[in-house]
Every structure is written in C-alpha cells, then in structure tokens.
C-alpha cells in the first residue's frame, strides 16, 4: 500500500489492541503512533543497510495454486519473503532475550508487512513485478496495476486514514475473532486469489474508470480492514 493505506491498517490495529499490547507499543514507541511509523519500512528499504529487507515486502508465486500447493510452495521457498519476515518479527517481539532496539525495529516492520500481506498485488507474479510492468489508464491517467492497488483506488475516495479507519470500524465481534484466528498463510492465499482475478481482468494498456473503481473499492476496503484487525 501507499502511505494512506498503511496508515489506515495501523489505525484500525490501534483501535483493536488489547490493554497489554497497547502498553507494550507505548513503551516501545513512546513518541510515535503506529500510524506514524507505518511506512518506515518503505522509507528504509533502499538504504544500503536495509537493502536486505526489500524482499520482505512481497511473495512471488506461479499461477494456479490451490491452498494446499500454495502453502507447500510458500514454505518451500528459499530466501526471505513476506511470510518468513512476519514470522521473524513475531519471534523477535515475543522473545524475552531480544533487545529493546530489536523489538522496536521488529514492531515497525510488522506494522508495515501485515499491511502489505493484505495488498493483493504484493502476493503475485515475479515476471511482471507484482503488476508494476502492466501499464493501465485509470481515469485517463497512465499508471500500472500495482500502483493502482497501492494507492490510486484509495486516493480516489479522498478520505484521510483516520476517516477510513472510522468508516471501516463496523466489523462485528464474531467476524473480528474469525479473522484474527486465520493463519498467516490464509491472509496470503486470499491476496493471491484476488491478484489472480485482477490479472485475468486487465491487459496491458487497459482503460479503467468508474466501473473498475466501483467494482473493486469494497475489496480494497475489506483488505485494509482485515489487515488492521489481524495486525492488532
């Protein structure tokens, strides 16, 4: 996601933290909110000392996997990716022997990566760089499929992250509980299923407008909401 998308996920999470987690977050980040640090991982990924984290933001996969083959493929991948990075950050945060500095960094990554795990185009194909090389037009302006889903669809709403978090805060407790029980691999598979559908819908050069926006905005909103609830 772009800045607004990550801020929305972080704000929804802040609204759903329990007392213990809220106190821990306050201790680790005394002067910043989760919203404020939600895009830190994007800001540092091009710096030499953090270049090793650039593969943490996504998963490249072949087409046509069912859930079983998806989970086997993801678990069998070599090298770091969004799945191994989320597991690693979780381990650092729950390990009493991790230093405070390690936990602060793991928290900043976790807030960002759980958001990215819910952006469908982050769980997609390698050959088009997650839709980055699929050029499309949206409302008469040139963009690409990845960028459209990162921010352009959200920007078209004209709402701030706080406004979106409030708007999406209507989930019933049973649904929250279910989403929070879902394993990380299921979050990733949901994104994979959506991106497969998005690829099938557009060809490079497609002209997309109101109809595409109306069709997919509820899906964007759902992914941000699930991301925030599961991050909490």
């Amino acid at each position: 996601w772009g800045v607004i998308g990550h801020q929305t996920v972080a704000k929804i999470a802040e609204n759903n933290l329990n007392i213990r987690a809220k106190a821990a977050v306050k201790d680790l980040l005394p002067d910043e909110s989760l919203t404020q640090i939600s895009s830190w991982a994007d800001q540092v990924r091009s710096q030499p000392e953090y270049r090793y984290t650039s593969s943490w933001h996504f998963l490249n996969l072949p087409d046509g996997l069912d859930y079983n083959s998806f989970t086997q493929t993801v678990k069998g991948l070599s090298g770091d990716n969004i799945y191994t990075a989320i597991l690693k950050c979780g381990k650092t945060l729950s390990d009493p022997s991790s230093s405070r500095a390690q936990k602060v960094e793991a928290l900043k990554f976790m807030v960002h990566l759980v958001g990215d795990a819910h952006q469908p185009m982050h769980i997609s194909r390698a050959e088009d760089k997650g839709g980055n090389t699929i050029q499309v037009q949206f409302n008469g302006k040139g963009t690409n499929l990845h960028s459209l889903w990162d921010g352009k669809l959200l920007d078209a709403q004209g709402l701030t992250a706080d406004e979106m978090a409030t708007k999406f805060n209507k989930t019933n407790p049973a649904q929250i509980l279910q989403w929070q029980k879902d394993p990380i691999l299921k979050w990733l598979f949901e994104s994979y299923q959506i991106s497969s559908k998005l690829y099938a819908e557009v060809q490079s050069g497609s002209k997309l407008s109101e109809e595409y926006y109306t069709k997919h905005l509820p899906e964007v909103q759902l992914r941000l909401e699930q991301g925030g609830i599961r991050l909490a």
């Binding site: 759903n16 987690a21 929070q180 990380i184």
Partner: peptide, 22 residues
C-alpha cells in the same frame, strides 16, 4: 491479532536512573 499475541508477555526494560549509571 498478531500484536495482541506476540506482545502478551512483554516486559519493559527497567529504566536506569541517572545516579545508577556507571
């Protein structure tokens, strides 16, 4: 949620007072 789970046993590091620093 993942933060509610991984931070459930979080303990803040004890703050060192200035007069305890070596």
């Amino acid at each position: 949620g993942i933060l509610n789970e991984v931070l459930k046993n979080y303990k803040p590091e004890p703050k060192i007072k200035d007069d305890q620093k070596t």
